[in-house]
């Protein structure tokens, strides 16, 4: 539980941070809230020689609406996501999910950027970003670019970020007004990662689902976009038979690890149960 030695840098602009990351190369890691990285360093599973703390960069701390999108600066804390009135009004699933991350102490420091960039399948926000079809603003030495959340995750701790790139903001298209949503997370205790979790956003019209998107957490090496399951739901009244079919389709794309949360079969089945419950709750919340 004692980390190796490292040098600490605190740039004040994105360009300075990018320059540092580029010049220090492999030996450098960005530090946001530190609540994934520092535990890894204490276990000596990570031993970066340089930490580039993004905490001093004011431009990464923002939360605004812009042309049909909510844009959230990477250094916005998970605690701030819970408190934001804009998010509660426009994308309430984000506040609901953030409340289920870890515990208050972690959320005071843990950031949205760190959570989505970390690449740990246990993180809760990535599946929600996939569900909401978010894109990430990314900057590196070759300039800014955008990556869709649905293309971002490649394996456990492997993402589409190039070496030296950082996420600067998360853009989320504002879901249709009156949409229903739910994030259902099964965990063993406060502060635990999900045994399985499901994010659902859907819209109803005339008693039928007209749009639906589903993301799954911690049941594969990456967060999952359950596209087929969502497709099965669209057009239905969320009747039991359709939900059962969608649950089966979602379970089919899972490939969880067996761990102390339970064997793989259990976690797959829990993804299904969480999905069914999220669908039911989202439906209750949906207008019309």
């Amino acid at each position: 539980m004692i980390p190796g030695s490292f040098a600490y840098h605190r740039p004040t602009s994105v360009s300075e941070a990018v320059l540092l990351l580029d010049s220090l190369g492999d030996e450098a890691r960005a530090l946001a809230g530190g609540h994934s990285l520092i535990p890894m360093m204490k276990l000596r599973l990570a031993s970066p020689a340089h930490l580039i703390d993004l905490g001093g960069i004011g431009e990464l701390r923002s939360l605004r609406e812009e042309a049909g999108e909510i844009v959230i600066g990477a250094m916005t804390t998970q605690h701030e996501l819970i408190g934001s009135q804009l998010l509660s009004a426009k994308i309430p699933i984000l506040s609901e999910t953030s409340l289920l991350i870890a515990d208050p102490q972690v959320r005071y420091l843990g950031t949205i950027g760190g959570n989505v960039a970390n690449g740990d399948p246990g993180n809760d926000l990535p599946a929600v970003m996939i569900c909401l079809n978010a894109t990430y603003d990314v900057t590196g030495k070759s300039g800014p670019r955008r990556i869709a959340a649905r293309d971002f995750y490649q394996g456990a701790y492997f993402t589409a970020l190039e070496p030296g790139e950082i996420v600067t903001a998360i853009r989320i298209p504002v879901p249709q007004a009156g949409h229903g949503y739910a994030y259902e997370k099964l965990k063993r205790k406060i502060g635990d990662y999900a045994t399985a979790a499901a994010a659902v956003v859907l819209s109803m019209s005339g008693g039928k689902v007209v749009a639906c998107s589903i993301g799954l957490t911690n049941v594969a090496e990456t967060p999952l976009w359950a596209e087929e399951a969502a497709g099965i739901i669209v057009g239905s009244t969320l009747d039991a038979a359709t939900v059962k079919k969608a649950v089966a389709a979602a379970e089919a794309i899972t490939a969880p690890a067996s761990d102390a949360r339970g064997p793989a079969i259990y976690r797959t089945k829990m993804a299904g149960v969480m999905l069914a419950r999220a669908l039911a709750r989202a439906r209750q919340r949906a207008g019309a």
């Binding site: 515990d103 063993r188 502060g191 635990d192 102390a260």
Partner: peptide, 16 residues
């Protein structure tokens, strides 16, 4: 030993 941290060794909090 697979349960040697408080992530996996169940120490209930006030919530549980």
């Amino acid at each position: 030993v697979t349960t040697a941290s408080l992530m996996d060794y169940f120490l209930p909090t006030a919530v549980e």
